[in-house]
């Protein structure tokens, strides 16, 4: 068996294999090699669970408040870092980005700044997120001339698409309530 050929499998095949593995095992592939670390970062399916950060579900229930908070902070960091890495790793290939964040207590996820520098060619769909800063003048550098559409689904707090301009979109503040 020529090992070089199998370890050079096309990224989409490796991502297909990853899609059949558990969250934990996908995360473990980061450790295989530098190439796999990059492949894992560009794996387009995200699946996070706060229980991942505990030994067990019971461990989560029994954790002290302090430990619990620390774990949750780490968990949110994990999401931020994962998104950021994904956008960097997938920079050239991403055409559509659809981010849907669902939380139990209906809090909105604060989208990291990196989103503004992603190079998307067609579509951005956001759901259940808010931006780090009030985006009255933030311009979406990510939307290039050939962009077809931007969807900002409710409930996105505070933002919606106002108008198209040549290379970017201005976002304005609106009052949209979260249901």
């Amino acid at each position: 068996m020529d090992d070089d050929r199998i370890s050079d499998l096309a990224p989409f095949i490796i991502h297909q294999i990853m899609s059949h593995l558990s969250r934990k095992q996908v995360a473990q592939t980061s450790l295989l090699s530098k190439r796999w670390n990059h492949l894992r970062a560009s794996f387009p399916i995200f699946d996070f669970s706060e229980t991942d950060l505990f030994q067990s579900y019971l461990g989560m229930r029994l954790a002290s408040n302090e430990e619990y908070c620390e774990r949750i902070v780490n968990f949110m960091k994990l999401i931020d870092v994962s998104l950021l890495r994904f956008l960097l790793a997938a920079e050239k290939d991403v055409k559509e980005l659809d981010i849907t964040i669902k939380t139990d207590d209906k809090k909105l996820y604060i989208l990291p700044h990196i989103i503004y520098s992603a190079k998307l060619s067609t579509t951005l769909v956001l759901y259940g997120v808010k931006f780090e800063k009030l985006p009255d003048t933030i311009r979406f550098r990510l939307i290039w001339k050939n962009s077809e559409r931007v969807h900002l689904h409710h409930p996105i707090k505070l933002v919606t698409v106002d108008a198209w301009e040549k290379d970017h979109i201005n976002l304005i503040e609106v009052q949209s309530s979260y249901h």
């Binding site: 090992d3 070089d4 095992q25 090699s33 530098k34 796999w36």
Partner: peptide, 19 residues
Amino acid sequence: LKNKSVEYVRAFFGIENDF
């Protein structure tokens, strides 16, 4: 590959650990 160790997966694909 399910539930296999990092070492097993490396051997399976013939991956060289370059870290």
